[in-house]
Design a protein around this nucleic acid. Structure first.
Lengths: 239, 239
DNA sequence: CGGTGTGAAAGTTTTCACAGCG
DNA sequence: CGCTGTGAAAACTTTCACACCG
C-alpha cells in the first residue's frame, strides 16, 4: 500500500494549523482530483498555485504544515498527494450526515450528487411539518424531529446540516447538539450559539451576493481576491 | 433624512479594506437587522461582538475603515448603522441578478426568499436544456442561453449565479463575462478563470462539509473559529 | 536543471490600552 | 461613568530567497 511519506510520528509539530490553510487544502484537493481524472501524474507547487491563483511558496508552506509530500526537481505525485490530503481532511472514510429541514433548499441538497464525491452521505432527513414526515425523497425517508437522537446514535452520525428558516435554526441546533452531533453546516441566516466542542460552518446565500455587491461597487480590481473556493467560515461563538 | 455621520469627504483614507473586514460587515448588518426587528435602538461594540463571537475592539476597528458611526458612552444607533452599512455594501439599491442552470439547486435558489431581504432579485433564469426552456418557475421564465446578452443589457444586470455542473461552469462564466456581468457567485465545484475586472465568490457545498470534517476530526476546540457567517471567498484568479 | 522545504523578512490583521467625549 | 476611535504592540500570514536534492 502506498504509504504517505511522512509517518504521523514526525508531523511538523503540533503547531495549530490556521483555518485559512485548511480551506486552501480543500481547493488543492479538488484541483488535484480534477487533474488526476485528466490523466496528470505529477504537479509542481507552481502549477497548482497557478491554477488556483496562489503563489508556489504558499502551496509549499501550506503542505508543509502537514508533512513532506514532494520530490525535489519533480513536484508532487497526484495520487500520493490526494491520498495524503484526504487523510488530513478526514474524507478517506465515510461520513454519515443528517439534514434538518426539507423545504426548497433542503430538497435540492438531498438531490445533490456532489457530496458523495468526498465521502459524505445524507442518511436521514427531518422536518417539523407533519405533512412532510413520512414522505420518501431521493430514497430518504423524512422523519419527525423526535427521532433525531436515535438516528444519530444508531448511525454514528457526527455532522448535521440545518436548512430551516432563521427563526427555528437555533432550536434545531440545540437539538442536534443534544443528540451528539459534533459539526454543523448552517444554511439559515443567523449566527448560532454553540458549545465550544461543536464546530460549525455557515453559508448565507444573501451574504454571498452582498459581498459581491461590495466588490463590484468598489471595483476591487485586485487587493480583494485571488483564487478561492467555497467554504463558509468555521465558527464556535461563545456565550 | 437621516444622514450618515461621515460624509464621503472624510472617509478614513482610501486604505484598501481587507476582505475579511467586509465579510464581517455582512454579519454585523445581519445581526443589526435582527436586533432592530426586536426593537433594540442602540448597541455597543461589545454587545454586537459578543453576539457574533468577535471582540469589541474588532468591531470598532472594522467600522473605523468606513467612518465614524458611534456615540461615546452610548454605542451605535441601530437604524443609522444599518443604513450606513447598506450604503457601504451597496444594498441600499436593488440588484437584478441572472441565474444560469435550473437543475435541483437552481430551482431551490429561484424559490429562496432570503435574497430579497438584501435587495437582490433574480430577474431571469437560463438553461441549455431545451426541455427546461420555456417553463415558468416561481414566476420566472427559463430562457435559452443565447438570450443572455440581451437580458443583461436590457435589465442592467451586473451579477450572475452559476448553478450548472462543473464541466459547464467555465463556459458559462465566459458567456456571463462577455455579456457584461461584473460579479459571479459560482456554485459549481471548480475554480473559474476570470478577467481581473470580474469579481467572484465561490460556494462549494462538499467543501463546506470537508472543512467540518477536518475540524471535527482534529477537535479544534478553539484556534479555529470564533463566530461567522456565510460568505465564500472573493476570487479573481489570474492566468 | 527544475523543483522542494524552510528559515528569515515583509506585510497584514488583531489585540491592547488609553485619551477623549457626552 | 460607559463607550468610541485610534495609535502602538503583538500575533499571525505571506513572500522571499536560498540550501539542498535527484
Amino acid at each position: 500500500m502506498n504509504e504517505s511519506r511522512t509517518p504521523s510520528g514526525d508531523l511538523p509539530s503540533d503547531a495549530p494549523v490556521p483555518k485559512v490553510v485548511v480551506s486552501r487544502l480543500s481547493l488543492y484537493l479538488r484541483e488535484l482530483q480534477r487533474l488526476q481524472s485528466a490523466g496528470q501524474q505529477t504537479i509542481s507547487s507552481g502549477q497548482l498555485g497557478n491554477l488556483l491563483g496562489f503563489s508556489d511558496a504558499q502551496v509549499r508552506k501550506d503542505l508543509g504544515f502537514f508533512g513532506q509530500f514532494g520530490y525535489p526537481g519533480v513536484g508532487y505525485r497526484c495520487d500520493e498527494l490526494i491520498r495524503a490530503m484526504r487523510d488530513i481532511l478526514g474524507t478517506n472514510h465515510p461520513w454519515p450526515v443528517v439534514m434538518v429541514g426539507v423545504g426548497n433548499l433542503g430538497l435540492a441538497l438531498l438531490g445533490y450528487r456532489g457530496f458523495g464525491r468526498q465521502n459524505f452521505s445524507i442518511r436521514a432527513a427531518f422536518d417539523a411539518d407533519p405533512a412532510k414526515v413520512g414522505q420518501t425523497i431521493q430514497g430518504i425517508l423524512v422523519r419527525p424531529l423526535n427521532e433525531l437522537p436515535a438516528v444519530v446514535r444508531h448511525e454514528g452520525v457526527r455532522l448535521g446540516m440545518i436548512v430551516v428558516p432563521a427563526e427555528r435554526a437555533q432550536e434545531v441546533a440545540d437539538r442536534l447538539v443534544v443528540a451528539g452531533v459534533e459539526g454543523i453546516v448552517n444554511f439559515a441566516p443567523v449566527t448560532l450559539v454553540l458549545p465550544p466542542h461543536v464546530q460549525s460552518v455557515a453559508v448565507d446565500l444573501a451574504i454571498e451576493l452582498e459581498q459581491l455587491s461590495f466588490a463590484v461597487t468598489n471595483k476591487l480590481a485586485r487587493g480583494f481576491g485571488e483564487s478561492i473556493g467555497g467554504q463558509g467560515t468555521l465558527a464556535t461563538p461563545e456565550q
